[in-house]
């Protein structure tokens, strides 16, 4: 009884918001499964990593195996933003805007060290870590990460989605927050900041 209501509720309040019974538990795992198996990335290639990201989509690595070859140009339809490359101070607001245009549930992979922390470009021009601008779920190391590394990051994300840990973690943060703020030495602060207690 009331599965229709349950679905409505699910859509409105997210997976955590409802009391589970057998049906909804099954439904929830189905939803998680579908989210993991159909994680459409938004096209957000910036630098070197974008090249590797596309190489990952090509024949030798083939993201299509996971149903991920559907790169959506419209952020409205994308589930995953792969920040591939260094984020400059000039680009950061654009990045945030695109992130805001994405619909929940949405995930972010910070691909490569430049996106994760500025990498070797510890200077005035680069945002030292994209998690100052958007909340990051998985970090992929490497400069650029090889396709296997990116795939590992993606599979890690899939695992997190499947286990549901991710949404819970996100909900625990005050505002679905974006990590920590860093005052850069030359006085340039990060462009947009959402504060979250770092555990």
């Amino acid at each position: 009884m009331g599965v229709g209501n349950q679905i409505e509720e699910l859509r409105e309040r997210g997976l955590e918001g409802i009391q589970h019974n057998f049906m909804t538990a099954r439904l929830e795992s189905l939803v998680k499964w579908s989210r993991a198996r159909s994680c459409w990335p938004a096209t957000f290639g910036l630098a070197c990593c974008a090249i590797e990201m596309m190489a990952t989509g090509a024949a030798h690595y083939d993201l299509a195996r996971y149903g991920m070859e559907v790169f959506r140009a419209s952020p409205r339809q994308a589930d995953l933003m792969i920040v591939a490359g260094r984020v400059s101070q000039k680009m950061a607001p654009v990045l945030r805007q695109i992130y805001d245009q994405m619909m929940e549930p949405k995930w972010v992979i910070s691909m490569g060290v430049c996106a994760s922390s500025g990498g070797m470009f510890n200077n005035y021009a680069i945002v030292q870590g994209v998690d100052q601008v958007v909340p990051v779920d998985v970090y992929a190391p490497g400069c650029p990460p090889g396709p296997e590394t990116l795939m590992h990051a993606i599979f890690t994300l899939h695992q997190e989605i499947l286990s549901g840990e991710l949404l819970a973690r996100r909900a625990a943060g005050e505002s679905g927050g974006a990590g920590i703020t860093v005052q850069q030495i030359d006085g340039q602060t990060a462009t947009a900041t959402i504060r979250r207690e770092h555990d």
Partner: peptide
């Protein structure tokens, strides 16, 4: 590893071959 660019200058520089690099590139962090 959120800074390391795997240029391997450290490996070349190490006088005692203490630091080397494995073949593992499949890792990522949450």
């Amino acid at each position: 590893y959120l800074r390391c660019i795997h240029c391997d200058l450290c490996v070349e520089a190490c006088p005692t071959q203490a630091i080397t690099e494995s073949k593992l590139f499949e890792f990522s962090f949450t």
